[in-house]
Write a protein that binds this DNA or RNA. Structure first.
Length: 566
RNA sequence: GUGCCCGUAGCUCAGCUGGAUAGAGCGUUUGACUACGAAUCAAAAGGCCGCAGGUUCGAAUCCUGCCGGGCACGCCA
């Protein structure tokens, strides 16, 4: 990964004219060698070999002789077919450590998204269903993408598109009327609604008329039947209160809570607009948009009974969001199982002539499985997020009791560490991969985990409490292999954010932070800070403060807190 | 059946737009707390990168086929 632009641009300047390539080409060809001993940047000579019809090794060697001495680089050396650049260590330390300390919490931010808005649709739990760990993925990936885009300078709009409308509510109402218990609803509302939901689907298998009954209630709900609306309102309030409690534990916030029901009054207009464009056709009693030309199944906008569907509401929501925020990007953080659905949705928007659909993007993530099978709300095989959170926090609390019994605010730190471990466990891998939920894995706080990173951060804070950064430090003293390795990795932070933003993959930030913590730990075990000679000590204090800053900044992009003690 | 995604060490996964000896963590074995926190560090063992072709100076990475797993495919969301 190419880090500090400064050095990169200097190489481009040095090579332009020396090689028959455009500056852009040179810039694109620059690589990072596999290890620091081989330099910071490498310029591969294979293309030149073709042009000059000579061995790339020879070309690299010739270039090494021709490149003029430069204050940015300690030396430039041919290594096989590569021309490798070794950055001047004190220059590197000045550019990175100095810059980090100057910018503080702003280090890593950019103005890439200046003046642009990105709308993020994430979390979106369904009311009437408990908050399962399936929704955890959308929640924390979305939350992290929000923070990453904000760091890139975008104005972010986080929307929790609550699943608070649809046939499922008709079913829930029907279930409540059959088996609902007012007392249970008062005592443990979420649990009771969950049981009703599961029971409905179980009984509906034997008695298909139940399904019709549920659909009937949803139709009444859409038609404004006061009784149905009142029940719906009640279920919604109960669920929302519960969701807010979970979000508080997770430390996740939203700018808007526009759920599906928010768009109710606009749905007719949407369908009318589709119709006016001649895109609406009736098929098997339902109203659809034909997508044969696009090679996809049709998109249903109204059922036979006239009630709307998910797509009707999503279509409306997209248009509303565009009108309201004129977004440069709209990201839908939704499971990979809805890939086809989003392709259909976007295809309909395109047919409607909304060019801005090009800016809409489905950000898929893999499914969570349990014991090898799919987790299903309906079958009741769901792991409750709340339970997972509690377990993780309990474990963190136990470890604290054992390792650091005198720690102040144990409870708060236990939450930060337990929740952090959970979040990191999800964000550190490519989001597209399916994950098999495994308690042992979730409860492992060693190795490549959030606590590992938080621990490095806490250790640094511990040193800095004993001796704050001293003014007048000389960063050019940071030149041993450990100081150098740590400095070099710190400089790569902005690139890690940029890449995470481009790809909408927070895992690049997560992986990067592991590298930083690892490099800090090596340094820590090899180089004393407090007991170093005064000048070295001052420089090292500055270095670890920079490392602390990067760890804290990076963790915050993942939505993970960085306690100063743990 | 058709389409999309995944397949790297015993397990869980990295591997940047194709490039220099394929890397971590967990687990296993062995060392390091009379230096700033051992939730740590150091070291060892462990891999025909699913299989077979192709493109290329060069393929874990790109293309094709096959195998294995997942997901989706009209009145759920």
């Amino acid at each position: 990964m190419i880090e500090m632009k400064l050095f990169q641009e200097q190489i481009v300047r040095l090579l332009t004219g020396l090689v028959p390539l455009e500056p852009e080409q040179i810039r694109a060809d620059l690589e990072s060698p596999p290890s620091l001993e081989m330099g910071n940047y490498a310029f591969p000579c294979f293309k030149l070999a073709k042009i000059h019809r000579a061995a790339p090794q020879k070309i690299a060697a010739d270039l090494a002789d021709k490149v003029p001495a430069d204050p940015f680089f300690e030396r430039v050396e041919a290594m096989g077919p590569y021309l490798n650049f070794f950055v001047d260590k004190s220059m590197l330390a000045g550019c990175t450590v100095g810059e980090i300390l100057r910018q503080g919490a702003d280090f890593g931010k950019s103005d890439e998204g200046q003046g642009k808005t990105v709308v993020l649709d994430f979390s979106a739990p369904n009311i009437a269903k408990p908050f399962g760990i399936g929704h955890l993925r959308s929640t924390i990936i979305g939350n992290s993408l929000y923070r990453i885009h904000a760091a890139l300078g975008y104005k972010c709009v986080g929307i929790n598109y609550i699943g608070d409308w649809g046939t499922q509510f008709g079913k829930l109402i029907a279930a409540y009327l059959h088996w609902g218990d007012e007392e249970l609803l008062q005592k443990d509302p979420i649990q009771h609604l969950y049981e009703l939901y599961v029971r409905f689907h179980r009984e509906a298998e034997a008695d298909p008329s139940l399904g019709d009954e549920g659909r009937g209630w949803f139709k009444k709900l859409e038609d404004g039947d006061p009784y149905a609306v009142a029940l719906w309102q009640r279920f919604r309030d109960i669920s929302l209160a519960e969701f807010k409690r979970v979000y508080a534990r997770l430390g996740v916030e939203f700018d808007y809570w526009h759920g599906e029901s928010f768009y109710n009054k606009m749905l007719d207009d949407t369908v009318a607009a589709v119709d006016a464009l001649g895109l609406l056709e009736q098929s098997q009693g339902a109203w659809i948009v034909n997508l044969e030309e696009e090679g996809m199944p049709p998109c249903l906008l109204r059922k036979q009974d006239g009630a709307t569907l998910y797509a009707t509401r999503d279509l409306t929501a997209a248009i509303y969001r565009h009108n309201t925020w004129q977004f440069a990007k709209a990201l839908y953080v939704v499971g990979v199982d809805q890939t086809l659905y989003f392709r259909q949705l976007f295809a309909v928007l395109k047919k409607m002539g909304h060019q801005w659909v090009e800016n809409c993007q489905h950000i898929p993530f893999g499914m969570i499985r349990f014991n090898g099978g799919k987790m299903s709300t309906r079958r009741g095989s769901l792991v409750f997020l709340d339970d997972v959170l509690s377990e993780a926090i309990d474990l963190a609390r136990e470890i604290i009791a054992e390792k650091n019994p005198d720690l102040p605010n144990k409870e708060e730190v236990a939450r930060q560490v337990g929740v952090g471990a959970l979040i990191f466990g999800d964000l550190c891998n490519d989001r597209i991969k399916d994950v098999d939920f495994d308690w042992d894995q979730v409860m492992d706080f060693s190795g490549e985990t959030a606590p590992y990173i938080q621990y490095a951060h806490a250790r640094i804070c511990s040193i800095l409490r004993k001796a704050p950064v001293e003014p007048g430090f000389n960063l050019s003293l940071l030149d041993n292999e450990y100081e150098y390795a740590l400095t070099a990795v710190l400089g790569k932070y902005p690139a890690a954010i940029a890449r995470a933003g481009e790809t909408c993959k927070p895992s690049f930030v997560a992986r990067y932070l592991i590298d930083v913590a690892k490099e800090f730990n090596r340094f820590y075990h090899q180089c004393p800070v407090l007991n170093a000679p005064p000048a070295v000590r001052a420089a090292r204090l500055a270095l670890i403060d920079a490392a602390r800053q990067v760890l804290a900044n990076g963790l915050s992009l993942l939505g993970i807190e960085a306690p100063e003690e743990m």
